[in-house]
């Protein structure tokens, strides 16, 4: 059941990304381009998502187990450290360069955009590199 639900959630998430325009890098760069023809619609995407999401998380926080009986695995970290801030900075720079963040990049790659394949291959390499560095450090 958990796997079936994960599939449908992924599907709805992906449809949401397409409907919202998040899979169009020109639109993302339009949002990030404050000095140009600024396109504020990404703020509407976040607003809509947080509106529903906050209700879901408010209910989830009250539970020890999910509706399907899985343990609630909510993040517990609260520290604002270098990893968070430098990592987010690197992510923001990459986001600004190409106009892709991870979800929309995967959806665009699946939609058959060759440029998204290149981006996703590089992104997965970056993630794998992180895993290698972290393993070495232990």
């Amino acid at each position: 059941m958990l796997n079936i639900s994960a599939f449908f959630v992924g599907l709805i998430f992906g449809l949401g990304l397409i409907v919202s325009g998040m899979t169009n890098p020109a639109k993302i760069i339009g949002f990030l381009d404050l000095a140009g023809a600024w396109d504020p619609s990404l703020a509407f995407v976040m607003g809509g998502a947080i509106l529903i999401g906050s209700g879901g998380f408010a209910l989830a926080k009250k539970r020890r187990r999910s509706l399907l009986g899985a343990p609630m695995q909510l993040p517990t970290a609260t520290n604002l450290d270098k990893r968070l801030l430098l990592g987010s900075t690197a992510f923001g720079v990459g986001w600004g360069i190409a106009g892709f963040c991870p979800g929309p990049a995967v959806v665009s790659a699946a939609a058959g955009q060759p440029k998204a394949w290149i981006f996703v291959a590089a992104m997965l390499s970056g993630m794998a590199l992180y895993s290698i560095i972290e393993r070495r450090g232990k």
């Binding site: 994960a6 919202s20 990404l42 947080i50 999910s66 963040c101």
Partner: peptide, 30 residues
């Protein structure tokens, strides 16, 4: 474009809410 953005956002939020409520997991792609 704002309506599309907002509607897509609602779907994304709904998906995030479903994943945490049914699976107890965070819908974070990375």
């Amino acid at each position: 474009t704002y309506i599309a953005g907002f509607s897509g956002g609602l779907l994304i939020g709904f998906a995030a809410a479903m994943l945490v409520l049914f699976n107890g997991r965070i819908a974070g792609i990375s």
